[in-house]
Design a protein around this nucleic acid. Structure first.
Lengths: 238, 238
DNA sequence: TTGTCAATTAGTGTATACGAAAAGCCATAA
DNA sequence: TTATGGCTTTTCGTATACACTAATTGACAA
């Protein structure tokens, strides 16, 4: 019995900490929507599922709580953070401002190499738009923005931006399926690229903010259509 | 009026969770510099100090790791995050941008009541400047900026800004002791207030950024004087 | 029927036990 | 003298046991 956990650790070829693996798994499941917002996360149940004990599960849950992905209701269990539409919009707005802030700095600081990489990346998205390939564009989009984060040459800011962005990943994919949002998204990228090319950080910043807010607006339409009915129900189901 | 968040209310409460109290205590000690950067945090030792077992201590440490206040070196202990001067400056720059972002939104959205509260708060700082009361001004400064966060009417953004700010609190107090930084700080606040009063968010934003960068510059002088020698040593002592 | 209260119970919060890995140390050999 | 190898020690990561809280359920009275 005592030697069992060693087997569990080796089963996943990842020598990393068990608690870290659980945290990563839960992060993915929450971000992807596999774990529905508001659902209860029972420690023993999760422990059984991961073939571990409650201890690493608890650590994972507590870490997720710091990032705001789950909500710890003292002595009453942990639930997947249930965002209100207002909070989601707040997060999108914040994300928009953060992206705007990053692209402004990036415009002033990016190296010629970084600029050419960004241009190349942007041009590669044309094909995805024409194919209307949501998944490919979603992946590209991530790269595009991360490329800008790096170009700020401020690693802390890049981490903060990445953190905010990752918390919205669950909603972002949805938004791309709205109408011809992909094409518009690329057009907006195009405008941002022009401002960057001219070294006009303030314009790039404004355009980026507008770009992100457009994405948020597309999502809001989706939320208004589909999430509203949920509001009538109890905050936390079982 | 200075209701702030619940932080003050929860400050000294025995009823809360033990792991939470330990986390808060450690946060304070790290932010205040009582726990020196780079020093090792041994679990059993901390458990003894808080009269608890290792379990809540571990949870606290893991949570602090998510915020970046401590560094977990797998199976080799936890140390207080040792920031390089570069990273500290990155954080200050990010903080400056975040504050600028907040004040811009706040300018457009604050209610007349919030505006008058901010004015009142600002005027109260005059006395502290004349008395050269660093502690009082430091406390006021915190309130001033938190007041602006709230006025964004975006709770998520306020939390993010607060998070970044709290991570710099250890360094901020130092900076205020540099020369006549307090007086200059208030003058800069004054200029920001004018822009807010005129409803000019972009100007308020630019002035706020300059204000924060001035504070960072004051700190850099301090760092160059006192922290540089440390760089010659090993990243982590023993 | 409904409201209140007590007993039950499910599930969290904390403590302790144990195996494993890394760090320290000493002895021994080149 | 120094380097290296194995042994000891320390401390971490995980498991498990216990304590305590709060939700739930059932009974009883109004």
């Amino acid at each position: 019995m005592a030697g069992l956990f060693k087997v569990a650790a080796e089963a996943e070829e990842d020598g990393g900490l068990l608690s870290d693996r659980i945290r990563n798994a839960l992060t993915d499941e929450i971000a992807s929507g596999t774990l529905v917002a508001g659902s209860a996360l029972e420690e023993q149940q999760l422990a059984d599922r991961f073939g571990a004990s409650r201890t690493p599960v608890r650590e994972a849950l507590r870490q997720l709580a710091v990032s705001g992905l789950v909500e710890v209701r003292g002595r009453r269990g942990v639930v997947v953070a249930r965002m209100t539409p207002e909070r989601i919009m707040d997060m999108f707005e914040t994300s928009a401002e953060v992206e705007a802030m990053c692209v402004r700095l990036a415009t002033y600081r990016m190296t010629p190499l970084e600029r050419s990489q960004l241009i190349e990346l942007h041009e590669s998205s044309q094909a995805m738009v024409e194919a209307n390939d949501v998944d490919a564009y979603d992946a590209f989009n991530r790269q595009f923005h991360e490329c800008i984060y790096r170009a700020t040459h401020n690693s802390f800011m890049a981490e903060q931006a990445q953190d905010v962005r990752s918390r919205l990943s669950a909603f972002r994919r949805t938004q791309l399926r709205q109408g011809d949002r992909i094409r518009k998204s690329r057009d907006e990228h195009e405008a941002i690229m022009h401002a960057i090319a001219e070294g006009d950080g303030d314009t790039a910043s404004r355009r980026m903010r507008a770009h992100m807010l457009n994405a948020a607006a597309a999502l809001r339409r989706y939320i208004d259509d589909r999430l509203k009915p949920v509001d009538g129900r109890e905050p936390y189901n079982t």
